[in-house]
Amino acid sequence: MRLTPDGEDLMGAVVTAVSRDEGHHFSKPTKHSIRLLAGLGVEGDAHLGVTVKHRSRVAQDPTQPNLRQVHLIHSELHDELREVGHEVAPGEMGENVTTRGVDLLGLPVGTLLRLGDAAVVEVTGLRNPCAQIDDFQPGLLKRVVHRDEGGNLVRLAGIMGVVREGGEIRPGDEITVELPPEPHRPLDRV
C-alpha cells in the first residue's frame, strides 16, 4: 500500500524522470535509468559518496556525512512554476528523481521511499536552493523559497535523501511510501 503522510492511499505515485551528472553543474541530463548505490547515492553522479559532495558544504567541513545523496522533486512543482511563467523540465533544477503523485514536502524525516523493484531512499530533509537557481532562470529563487504569512521560511525545491538499498530506477517505476514511527519530525533543510 502507498500512503500519504496523512494516511491516504496513493494511487499512481510514480517516478516520472531520472537524471544524473558527473560534473558539478546546476542541471542534470535525464537518463533512461539510474542506479542507486547503498550508502553512496547515484552511480556516476557528482554527489556520490559517504561524505558531503556539495562544494559549499565541502568548504565548511569535508568530513560531514552526505545527507544529500539523492535529490527528489515533485513534477507538480514544475506544473506550478509553468503557470507563473517558468518553463522547467525534469533534471533542470538538479534533481536526480522527478516524481508525481506523492507529497514529498509533507513527508517526515526518516520516511522510506521504495522506488521500483529494489531501491530505497530514506528522506533526510529539504533542499535549500542557492542563488545559482536565478542564474538558471531569473526570479525562480523567490518562487521556490519564500516566507509565509507567519514569517516562516518555506522551501519548495524538493527533498534530499540517502540510499538505504541500491537498485536501478527508471521513469514509470512505482513509488511506495513507508512512514517512520511516530512522533514524526517535519522536514528541515539539510
Rank of each mutant, 00 (worst) to 15 (best):
L126R: 01
E182H: 07
A131G: 10
Q60C: 08
A38K: 13
R68T: 12
V120L: 04
G49F: 00
L72P: 10
T111L: 06
L36R: 08
N96R: 09
V50Y: 09
R127K: 05
V97E: 00
V42K: 08
L67G: 07
T99R: 06
E43L: 15
S27F: 12
L72E: 09
D9Y: 14
V162H: 02
T111H: 01
P171K: 02
L3H: 03
K142W: 02
G23T: 15
H54P: 01
R57T: 06
V15M: 03
V144M: 04
L112A: 14
E83G: 01
E22K: 15
P90V: 07
G94F: 07
P186N: 00
L104P: 02
A89M: 01
E87T: 04
Q69L: 12
N96W: 12
N96A: 11
D135E: 11
G161L: 09
I73R: 09
E83T: 05
V162P: 05
L112Q: 15
G172L: 01
V109W: 13
M1D: 00
G101I: 13
D173C: 09
V177A: 04
L140G: 14
L107H: 13
V190R: 01
V144L: 08
D103L: 13
S56Q: 03
V177Y: 02
L3W: 04
L140N: 12
D6M: 08
V123G: 08
L140S: 12
Q69H: 11
D117T: 11
L81C: 14
K142H: 06
P129F: 09
H78Y: 14
L115M: 13
L105F: 07
D117I: 03
L141K: 15
G94N: 05
E182N: 02
V84L: 01
R114Q: 08
V50H: 10
I133T: 15
P5L: 10
D173Q: 03
V123N: 07
V88I: 12
V58H: 01
M160E: 04
N128S: 10
V177S: 03
H54A: 02
N152A: 12
V144P: 03
D173R: 05
R55H: 01
G151F: 10
H54Y: 05
M11H: 11
T16D: 00
G101R: 13
R114Y: 13
K53Y: 01
K53I: 03
T4Y: 05
N96D: 09
I169Y: 10
R57E: 08
V88G: 04
R20P: 09
E87M: 02
T99W: 15
G125W: 00
L179P: 00
M93E: 00
M11Y: 14
V15E: 02
V162Y: 03
E8F: 08
H47W: 00
